[in-house]
Design a protein around this nucleic acid. Structure first.
Lengths: 206, 206
DNA sequence: ACAAAAACCTAGCGCATATTCGGTTTCTTG
DNA sequence: CAAGAAACCGAATATGCGCTAGGTTTTTGT
């Protein structure tokens, strides 16, 4: 009765294998989307058979959900974002890192666009995700507006959507044309917004 | 010898049928993407068999290209955009109309995201398209900068990418969460940019 | 009115896919 | 070291896809 009814025995290398499958699945889903991705291609990358992959994740759908779960954790901030500066720094850092690890952003854009279709298996996930991320962004803005750090006539919701939208739209352009400098454009936006809306005790640091 | 060797006879209702097929294909491609779309679903919408659709367009690929062709024409400006005001007005009008005709934008986002994959049949189209649209936007900006209508230290390319990226990113969010007010966020961007960069002889009209 | 071609349809082919099934190997635990 | 289960694999199944083949109906110019 050491590992009883819950008995989920597991080999030592199993977590590693699952991780390798997730790596491959992320890359393939990012490139081809869920609809264009095949278990065969994922299995090939891992050096395993289709059936082997399914042994670990049960179905393509479950594999997709596991990928989304991991993706959600990887781009979650380590600590709550309380101030505007923290939020901005976090989101900008994401954009910068996206240049060296294009997979994450590509996964996001590819799957999010596919998920517009209500019949898509990730539809609910992305609908919920955008709501969460938006409120994560609106809250510090509202807090700043309340404490006088922001002009109080600003539509914080519109502002949050603008920043998030710009980030992903730029990323989409960059994916199609690598010459597009996402960070330059995004910084342009941040500078202009700061100049227009932030009420700083110290003068602006452009 | 009235319609000789080039003899492409056509029934009277054929153009109408082709148009109806294109309508259906646009809607289905917009919802499901190219990979998720099936000729069967398109044919059903038209009230025709799969083979009937193929009789008119030859292959799914050719149908996709026909859709892209039409799409490109529909959102092309009627006249060249020479000034910033014209460009901004045009792109903003597109956004407003997108609310009443979501199909066009959804088609654009869905297919563009799918097209990140170099193996996608529309890859070349979207790579080229973004280049074209960007330069269409950069040109009036450069002209304005040259004639003193714009602050001359502005990175016009980054600016153009920002505006285009924001537009599409917002549209993606809106597609997933209709509560997102794309026009409000976009106007926010335009106002802030105008205030920051446009050198107007008359004072700004917020 | 008549032939000829366009505009369809039904049926089926070949292929790729996700998933299942039964067996074999590999590891873990007592 | 010896069960026994986990971790695989090869093969088969069912489904959906784009596309083709061949025939029938509808429209057309003469």
């Amino acid at each position: 009765m050491s590992t009883p009814t819950t008995g989920q025995r597991q080999y030592a290398k199993t977590p590693g294998q699952r991780a390798r499958i997730l790596d491959a699945a992320m890359a393939v889903f990012a490139r081809r989307g869920e609809r264009g991705a095949s278990l065969r291609e994922i299995a090939e990358r891992v050096g395993m058979s289709q059936a082997g992959v399914l042994h670990h994740f049960g179905s393509k759908n479950a594999l997709l959900l596991a990928v989304l779960d991991r993706f959600d954790q990887e781009d979650q901030p380590g600590h709550p974002l309380l101030t505007i500066d923290e939020s901005v720094a976090f989101v900008r850092e994401e954009l910068v890192q996206g240049l060296q690890r294009p997979g994450l952003f590509q996964l996001q854009i590819t799957l999010a666009a596919e998920s517009i279709d209500p019949a898509h298996p990730a539809h609910d996930f992305f609908v919920d995700r955008y709501r969460r991320v938006t409120s994560q962004f609106v809250e510090p803005l509202d807090a700043a507006a309340a404490s006088g750090g922001l002009r109080d006539d600003v539509d914080t919701t519109a502002l949050a959507h603008l920043v998030m939208g710009a980030m992903e739209g730029l990323q989409l352009h960059h994916a199609l044309n690598p010459e597009v400098d996402t960070v330059a454009s995004f910084d342009l936006l941040l500078d202009v917004l700061a100049e227009a809306f932030i009420v700083s005790s110290t003068p602006d640091q452009v």
